[in-house]
């Protein structure tokens, strides 16, 4: 099985590639709609501004093939912005549309804490999680973001707290998303990526 990494120009693509390579997984990066339609497993990394990702999906005609592949059941992992774009929209650029595969809107984290939420934090598991299987509940993951998806969503399997509680891990059938960066989260992140590869195989 090969993982197709959607490359819209996000800075964290090389580190995602390296993390997959260390796990012995084959990957290709693409920005072509045809490759997305053909993919066996999809990974959408993201970092930076929401509008850059939402705009790239439209300008490069990736939105339709991506939604179609996810509806068809192709295993998908969204990282950081790649999780946020699964929802309807984001307060970071309210005029743009998300993929609306999950209900709810991405909001700014509250201003009574330091932003960006940057560094290593723990998560609280809400329910059984396939992505987090075998991972010690006390481990830390690396976060770097100022906006977050609501934890009230039925697909949230783990939450994190920084000024407010938000979705750290979402799982809905074949659709997985993590707000933190597994490719930057040492052993724990590597284990999570390993779990995704196993689920996708």
């Amino acid at each position: 099985m090969k993982v197709t990494i959607i490359d819209y120009g996000a800075g964290n693509v090389p580190s995602v590639e390296r993390a997959l390579e260390r796990l012995g997984a084959e990957s290709e990066r693409t920005s072509s709609p045809e490759d997305i339609s053909r993919a066996q497993a999809l990974l959408l990394p993201g970092v930076g501004h929401y509008s850059a990702l939402a705009r790239a999906l439209d300008e490069q005609n990736l939105r339709a093939p991506l939604v179609e592949a996810l509806r068809r059941g192709v295993p998908f992992l969204g990282i950081c912005l790649g999780l946020q774009v699964l929802f309807e929209s984001s307060a970071e650029s309210p005029e743009m549309h998300g993929l609306s595969l999950l209900a709810g809107k991405v909001c700014a984290l509250p201003s009574n804490v330091k932003l960006p939420h940057m560094g290593w934090n723990q998560i609280a598991m809400n329910r059984e999680s396939q992505l987090l299987a075998g991972i010690d509940p006390s481990v830390y993951f690396y976060f770097a973001h100022s906006y977050a998806a609501p934890d009230s969503n039925g697909s949230t399997s783990a939450t994190c707290f920084h000024g407010t509680s938000f979705a750290a891990v979402v799982e809905e059938r074949n659709i997985y998303g993590v707000q933190f960066h597994p490719e930057k989260s040492g052993e724990a992140g590597s284990r999570l990526l390993h779990n995704f590869l196993r689920l996708a195989a």
Binding site: H117, G119, W120, N121, Q122, I123, C160, F161, H162
Partner: peptide
């Protein structure tokens, strides 16, 4: 549960 202090 809160943000860890980092050593860099």
């Amino acid at each position: 549960m809160s943000l860890a202090h980092r050593i860099i």
